[in-house]
Simulated assay, not measured.
Amino acid sequence: MERERISIMPQFAERVELARAYYDKFYSKTSNRLVFCGINPRQSGSGKTGLPFIDFNGINQLMSGKYKDVQERSAQFMLSIINKYEIGEFQNAVYMTNLSWYGFRRDGKNMNYYNLPRAIRDLFIESFIEEMKIVQPTAIVPLSGEVERKLKKLAADDQLDFPIAERLPHPFNCSFPTNVEKARERYHKCIEQHTGLQI
């Protein structure tokens, strides 16, 4: 990707131990989970922690961490959803990921997965498909129109053999004060419908 001036956000290599600790704590137990699926990490939230939709403020709360209390809007909205349940209860029922595990930059600026050259996109999609085979989701909830289109295309091409649930608005859009209450209702309703988990 060097020729296209594209690089992977450096924090991912630096947060391997944090990611391992998080997944060991919350996802070592086999369970049938609903999957919330975004596009890719961005610089300010999961781009720093290496964990989808989790910022350092969330890490401090969920894992008793001692990181600088950095917050990001999407992650704070997701934390408000998670905090309605007991710690670990949400993770037993819901798995959060992205089409691409990695975040990208071009010339130092955030770059979305779908703007990558196709050959590179295909590599990350292969990884996502393998991840879903491991997770065995009860359903996958797209968190943007772009994700919804890609998931439905993968399903139509027989590359993804799991139900695609109704799309939910992206957590960043949900985080605005005028949207947050109704968005939380939609997220909790989706969780209850697909997992039986109740607040």
Results as ranks from 00 to 15, higher is better:
E148N: 13
K25L: 12
M132K: 02
P171A: 01
Q43L: 15
V147F: 09
Q43H: 13
S28M: 10
N179K: 07
E148K: 13
K66H: 09
Q198C: 13
Q198I: 13
D161C: 09
R5S: 07
M78Q: 09
K182N: 07
I8M: 02
L123W: 06
R121E: 01
S7V: 10
F90V: 02
P169G: 04
N173I: 06
A119L: 08
V35S: 07
Q71Y: 09
P137H: 00
E166D: 13
F176N: 00
I191F: 09
E86K: 06
E192D: 12
R105Q: 15
V94L: 03
A139Y: 08
Y85E: 05
G38P: 09
M132N: 03
Q11H: 13
R33F: 05
E126I: 02
E4S: 04
Q43R: 15
N110V: 12
A156E: 01
Q136I: 03
E17P: 00
L197S: 08
W101D: 10
Y22S: 06
L123S: 04
K48S: 14
L154N: 03
G50D: 06
T30G: 00
S144Y: 05
R15N: 08
F124Q: 08
N110G: 15
Y85S: 03
T97N: 11
Q136H: 08
T138G: 01
V94M: 04
I191M: 04
P169R: 06
L79W: 04
F124T: 01
Q43Y: 15
I59G: 06
N60W: 10
A139W: 03
A183E: 00
S44P: 12
D107M: 09
R184M: 08
L160Q: 01
R184T: 10
G47E: 07
E146L: 15
E166I: 14
K189F: 14
F104M: 08
S64E: 15
L99W: 08
Q71V: 15
F53M: 14
Q198W: 10
Q71N: 09
Q61H: 13
I81W: 04
E86W: 02
T195I: 02
I125S: 06
V35N: 11
S31M: 05
Y67I: 01
K150V: 14
V35Q: 07
K48Y: 12
S127R: 14
E185M: 12
Q136R: 04
E148R: 11
D24A: 07
R186S: 07
N98L: 05
A13M: 08
E126S: 05
D122E: 14
Y23K: 09
K153F: 00
E72G: 15
K48Q: 13
P10K: 13
E148A: 13
L18G: 01
Y102G: 00
